[in-house]
């Protein structure tokens, strides 16, 4: 015997869809600009029909069933795209809850016996709840993907290696230096040294808010690695507060060439490369 609600849903497919769209349109007055009504309709239709078509006696009480794979796929793609479009969690949640509302109200219209109605409603309720949980999971995952991508971008953007002069590289560091960032800084700097054949690298730390012993250790590591490559490393942009903390912490930076400003570091680099920069003589 076929479950009663399945029969009803299959018969009333179109009516459920209309109801669902109606509930959504009432809900989402605020967000009409994020998705057009037509798109929403196509999206909802696809999901609803996939759900009803895959519904059967064997799986109605089991949301993990393989029959629902296509439904879950559609749900995930909807929630991921919503996460990227900037929907709020409430809106994404309401999308599924409004489907539940539409399904349950259809059931209450069709089933007259209160006991059967209750039993059927509970089954549908449970099934839809588990779908909404998985929707939330993917929604949050979609958001996390966005965050990871942005973190990656920030790390990439924040460590540009600049060619200051022929044979002189500069690397302004902005933000706190942690282990993973030091790794990126070191790798990009060393790679650039190989590519450009530069013999001097200037690390400018004026954008580093604080230098503790760990940051100092990272700096020393970078300098040592640069030396192993056969280039010299100058650290510039040491602010008075940084000088104070370094000395108070008892960190030994005496093996490293340090300068207060990028300008003086560049001057030192010129001297090391036997370069001279002169003001042009005015022709009289």
């Amino acid at each position: 015997m076929k479950n009663e609600s399945i029969k009803i849903f299959q018969k009333k497919k179109q009516a459920v869809l209309e109801k669902w769209i109606h509930i959504q349109s009432q809900d989402q007055i605020l967000n009409n600009d994020l998705i057009t009504n037509e798109d929403l309709r196509i999206q909802s239709e696809e999901l609803l029909f996939a759900f009803i078509d895959n519904l059967s006696d064997s799986n109605i009480d089991n949301a993990e069933s393989r029959d629902f794979e296509s439904v879950v796929d559609i749900l995930s793609s909807i929630s991921i795209s919503r996460a990227k479009q900037g929907y709020s969690p409430r809106e994404t949640g309401n999308y599924i809850y409004s489907l539940k509302e539409a399904l349950l109200s259809t059931l209450s219209e069709e089933i007259k016996d209160p006991a059967t109605l209750y039993a059927q409603s509970m089954i549908i309720n449970k099934l839809l709840d588990s779908f909404s949980t998985s929707t939330f999971e993917t929604f949050i995952k979609g958001r996390e993907d966005v965050i990871f991508r942005q973190t990656d971008e920030i790390t990439q953007i924040s460590t540009p290696v600049i060619r200051l002069w022929d044979g002189i590289l500069a690397l302004p560091i902005i933000g706190t230096l942690d282990s993973s960032r030091t790794q990126v800084v070191m790798e990009s700097l060393l790679q650039e040294i190989v590519e450009t054949g530069s013999s001097i690298a200037i690390l400018d730390i004026s954008g580093v808010p604080a230098v503790d012993s760990l940051v100092a250790q990272h700096l020393i590591k970078t300098v040592s690695a640069t030396r192993l490559m056969g280039a010299e490393c100058i650290i510039s942009g040491i602010r008075p507060e940084i000088a104070q903390t370094v000395v108070h912490l008892g960190i030994d930076l005496s093996t490293i060439i340090t300068k207060a400003t990028l300008a003086s570091a560049l001057k030192t680099a010129f001297i090391m490369l036997n370069l001279e920069v002169n003001k042009k003589q005015r022709v009289k």
Binding site: E187, L190, Q191, V194, K221, S224, T226, M229
Partner: peptide, 14 residues
């Protein structure tokens, strides 16, 4: 010592 690769330099420092 000449021509050390970046990855090798990082390893030695580590």
């Amino acid at each position: 010592v000449v021509g050390m690769q970046p990855a090798v330099a990082i390893t030695l420092v580590e």
